[in-house]
């Protein structure tokens, strides 16, 4: 599993990458009440704001961790945003994407580096 400075995690699954937010980020945000996901098939560039998440108090964005294409989104979140708080590393995943260049993963932090980062 790899991590970004935006508190996203990325896990390789076959030729795709699953993306979510870390437990640290979920705790900081508080209970989510709304998630808006991108359309599958959308081509994204690194740092594009592609997911909107809202807690009771505030809205924030999840950015694309790398260039690529959104392949699948976790539609369960639209009906139950609390999944992100309950299981941020598992059922609370946001989307699966195909990276334009898988070697982008090499530039990201591993778990030890992320723990130091937070």
């Amino acid at each position: 599993m790899k991590f970004t400075e935006e508190h996203e995690w990325l896990r390789v699954e076959d030729d795709l990458v699953v993306v979510g937010i870390t437990e640290h980020a979920a705790t900081q945000l508080g209970d989510l009440v709304f998630v808006e996901l991108p359309e599958p098939g959308k081509t994204v560039a690194k740092d594009d704001e592609i997911v909107v998440i809202e807690s009771v108090k505030a809205a924030s964005d999840i950015m694309a961790p790398a260039d690529g294409e959104i392949v699948e989104v976790n539609e369960a979140l639209e009906g139950n945003p609390a999944l992100v708080n309950e299981d941020p590393l598992g059922d609370g995943w946001f989307f699966k994407m195909k990276l334009a260049d898988m070697s982008d993963m090499d530039k990201m932090m591993d778990e030890a580096e992320y723990k130091k980062f937070i």
Binding site: G30, D31, V33, S55
Partner: peptide, 11 residues
């Protein structure tokens, strides 16, 4: 602004 349970549960 909030305690450990968070805004939703406090409400």
């Amino acid at each position: 602004v909030q305690y450990p349970p968070g805004v939703l549960k406090e409400h």
